[in-house]
Amino acid sequence: MKPVVSAFNAWTCIVISAFAIVILSAIGSMFANNHHSMMGSTEDPKDGKKVAGAVFGAVIVYAIFLLFCASQAFLHKRQQRQGEIALR
């Protein structure tokens, strides 16, 4: 099987997805627990659980991106070990 994206794009996607998962998980957990920094203002949402659900939905999307990009990076590593010549 051949990779769909370049190795640079795959590794960039891995890094961005990992950071997004960590940051969005922290934000989602603050909304889920009705933390005062997220729910303290009059302009903030009333139901933190619904917002947390949406944020955790984004975490799932980034996890899928992470799996896809990790598989692409794995394919590049496997292709490189087989001694194929890459034209750049």
Rank of each mutant, 00 (worst) to 15 (best):
A26E: 10
L87E: 15
S41H: 09
A7K: 09
H35W: 15
C69N: 07
N9W: 10
I27H: 08
A20L: 12
I23E: 09
I14T: 03
A52H: 02
A73E: 05
D47V: 12
M30Q: 08
M30T: 04
G40F: 03
R81C: 06
A54N: 13
H76F: 13
F19N: 09
M38N: 04
A73F: 00
R81I: 10
S37V: 14
L87P: 07
V55Q: 02
F8I: 06
F19V: 07
M38T: 14
F19L: 11
W11E: 04
F8K: 11
V61N: 03
H35Y: 15
F31M: 03
H35K: 13
N33I: 10
T42D: 12
A73Q: 03
T12S: 08
P45F: 00
N34Q: 15
L75P: 02
A58C: 08
E43A: 08
N33G: 13
K46P: 02
L75F: 08
D44L: 04
R88G: 08
C69I: 04
D47I: 13
A54P: 00
A20I: 07
M1D: 12
S25L: 03
F31G: 00
Q80M: 10
N34L: 11
F19S: 08
F65P: 02
I60Q: 07
F65A: 10
I14P: 04
A70D: 05
S41Y: 01
M1L: 13
A10S: 10
S17P: 04
F31S: 04
Y62T: 01
A70I: 01
G53K: 11
D44C: 08
A10L: 01
I14E: 00
F56Q: 04
A32S: 02
E43V: 07
S37E: 11
I64E: 11
I23D: 05
M1R: 12
V55I: 15
I64K: 06
S17Q: 06
S71G: 02
S41V: 06
W11Y: 13
H76W: 14
Q72T: 04
A7G: 08
M39L: 07
I85A: 09
A63C: 05
G83L: 15
G28A: 00
S6V: 06
L67G: 15
S37I: 14
I85R: 11
F74D: 01
Q79N: 12
N33A: 14
E43I: 09
L24P: 06
I14V: 15
I85S: 12
F56L: 07
F68V: 05
A86P: 03
L75D: 03
A54T: 12
T12F: 06
K46D: 12
A10C: 03
P3T: 02
H35E: 15
S71N: 10
R88P: 01
N9P: 02
A86F: 13
C69P: 00
V55N: 06
A18R: 00
G28W: 01
M1W: 10
N9R: 10
S41K: 09
A18D: 02
K50S: 15
R88M: 10
V61D: 01
K50C: 10
T42C: 05
P3Y: 07
L87W: 13
N33R: 15
A7V: 05
P3R: 06
A18E: 05
Q79M: 13
L87G: 11
V22E: 07
H76S: 01
M39P: 04
N9E: 14
F19M: 09
H76L: 11
P45Y: 00
N34M: 12
G40Q: 03
A20V: 10
R81K: 14
G40H: 00
C69W: 02
N33K: 14
P45S: 00
